[in-house]
């Protein structure tokens, strides 16, 4: 009974065969999934980024403003559209409740995308490929990314950031 004290000597009572088999299977499985974690990291082609720096939100804002000024090619829904050269450092800024700028990227080129927030936490969810990263004020999170499909992508804010959270939608264009 689980509500009464066990028989004296319970510590030495032997395991049933089935129990031994199951515990072995479970232990091997756990070792396997634990090893799979570094395995995937080392041999997989897509990991979450390990590059990050601390940055003051105001300084980040200044950098993004400069980036926009340098590469603006137009405007959509009041948000500047920028077309940075291949291989450039590119910037995305989250703030209540918009993503700017709109990025115009080239398929097959590699970019270093900087993410940070001006106010509270946000998160970038790229639709429709459903990739998600946290966007944190005070932290510059750098993702190295190479678009492999062309088309139009949305950035959906994925972290509750206040009453306008659901309206925080941005855009990325990938041209072939």
């Amino acid at each position: 009974m689980s509500v009464t004290s066990p028989q004296p000597g319970w510590w030495n009572s032997p395991l049933h065969k089935e129990e031994k088999i199951w515990i072995t299977i479970a232990a091997v499985w756990c070792v396997f999934i634990t090893l799979a974690m570094p395995w995937w990291h080392i041999f997989g082609t897509q990991n979450s980024s390990q590059e990050y720096y601390t940055i003051n939100p105001d300084d980040y804002g200044t950098v993004v403003d400069k980036f926009i000024e340098q590469y603006t090619v137009g405007e959509e829904a009041g948000i500047p559209v920028v077309a940075p050269p291949a291989g450039a450092e590119i910037f995305l800024r989250g703030q209540q409740w918009m993503w700017d700028p709109i990025l115009k990227l080239k398929k097959g080129e590699t970019y270093r995308l900087h993410l940070s927030s001006m106010d509270v936490l946000h998160a970038m969810s790229i639709y429709p490929i459903n990739m998600n990263f946290e966007v944190v004020p005070g932290w510059d999170y750098v993702l190295t990314l190479t678009p492999t499909t062309s088309g139009e992508f949305n950035i959906i804010c994925n972290e509750f950031c206040g009453i306008g959270h659901h309206s925080m939608i941005g855009k990325i264009y990938v041209e072939s």
Binding site: I79, S125, P128, N130, N154, H165, H166, S167, M168, I169
Partner: peptide, 19 residues
């Protein structure tokens, strides 16, 4: 399919773009 948690409207009403 990428539908966010904690979101009142997944289609982005009131936003600059709709999904």
């Amino acid at each position: 399919f990428g539908v966010s948690r904690r979101s009142w409207d997944m289609n982005g009403v009131d936003g600059p773009f709709q999904v």
